[in-house]
Design a protein around this nucleic acid. Structure first.
Lengths: 219, 219
DNA sequence: CCTCTTTGTAAGGTTTTCCCTGACAATCGT
DNA sequence: ACGATTGTCAGGGAAAACCTTACAAAGAGG
């Protein structure tokens, strides 16, 4: 890599931009080519300058980073986007990654971490602040806890599980009966027996139960 | 942290163990307290020495690292386990993390990376080699594109969204009315209008819609 | 400035679905 | 071999959903 990486700063705090600019310009391999104080501005500048990397804040006035992200990805497809934010919220992380961010660094992180994240991202890697990687994993690995609730569920008969799943998915007894080639009344029995065993009394709590235990997915 | 971290090496390659031992002993904050050449040996030593950290290879003769992992977690609950392996296979990564590994480093990684991974893990963080983080994400973020539906959803009024969410969660109109301080009939209007806008005709399809677009969670 | 549409609010009446109570044969566990 | 569980089904009253209609306030558009 002979020439410097061209970086666009998008953050509404001028002080922070100034600080980062100083930091980056003191490095041999970075060059700040633009600064944006809002999502809109970031869009314009990104399109004009087609930088190698954008440091994007999530919370900006008007068009926030999360909303700007997908558009940026479209208008500057070869630009890597590194989220730089104060929110150590897993929700934001997920949304950002989903929208095509290449990395996620917290503002409270050290300079060195920022730089190494930037370099990793430019190398094509994905960088996530370690403390947040964990939350990502907790999301990914939830199959760890077979709670007492799951045991309860496993205690149901096959029919009961099948019917309750469909009930939780919003099907009426008639629809379920049709699908399983049973009488409506039969289905209602399974439903009642199953609900009783789970100690649930209405559809809403059943749905939450199913959601909690990941019994239902959109298939 | 005044005293050194006690480390157990588990790898069947003596050369590699020797190299790592040299590396670690040259550091101010690590102290190798044992070496195991097999999964079984690792178990025994871990139980005896209760180290702060185990560097665990996945491919060892007899009891492999993946099999030893859960047992180690049980017999040495306060020990963090860092996988050190040559396999950059996402499958192994997932299994290892699922079984309670705190980190995953490739043997081809630089010394420095190993050290920083070890420190991160001891700090309680989760460390995954960045090139593998990406595969983790691809696993986690498969719900790539469905945004036309999301746009549809965003076109609903606030009340409509609120009501439909609750409907999808299985609440009856009466329950929703109570929660939102509205008349049952009003709620039913929102429900009908919203469903119409989404082109849905029954609760089941609404639930699947909500599931697909992650509109409902167990909160 | 005056329509047209959208939004928030609500009711009446009809149709569907739910829920509670039974029922009975087959399987199963011990 | 006998009580418990499972799979199957019904009747009837209560509850919920569904369809249609209504109207005022707020916004959009010409």
């Amino acid at each position: 890599m002979s020439s410097k990486s061209r970086v666009l700063l998008a953050d509404d705090h001028a002080v922070l931009r100034a600080g980062i600019r100083l930091l980056l310009n003191s490095q041999p391999d970075f060059n700040v080519v633009g600064e944006a104080a809002s999502g809109i501005e970031a869009l314009t500048l990104a399109e004009q300058t087609q930088p190698d990397l954008i440091l994007l804040d999530l919370s900006m006035p008007g068009l926030g980073g999360l909303d700007a992200l997908p558009v940026l990805r479209q208008r500057a497809p070869n630009t890597r986007i590194l989220i730089l934010t104060m929110h150590d919220d897993p929700q934001y992380l997920r949304k950002a990654l989903k929208s095509g961010a290449a990395g996620y660094v917290l503002k409270k992180a050290a300079d060195i971490e920022l730089l190494s994240a930037m370099r990793a991202v430019l190398r094509g890697e994905v960088y996530v602040h370690p403390s947040m990687t964990r939350s990502l994993l907790e999301d990914l690995i939830p199959q760890g806890e077979s709670s007492d609730e799951l045991d309860l569920w496993k205690g149901l008969s096959d029919r009961e599980q099948e019917v309750l799943r469909l009930v939780a998915l919003g099907y009426t007894s008639a629809e379920i009966a049709a699908r399983l080639n049973l009488s409506t009344k039969t289905v209602e029995t399974y439903r009642a027996r199953g609900m009783e065993k789970l100690g649930l009394s209405n559809r809403a709590s059943l749905v939450r139960f199913a959601l909690r235990n990941e019994l239902i997915t959109p298939d």
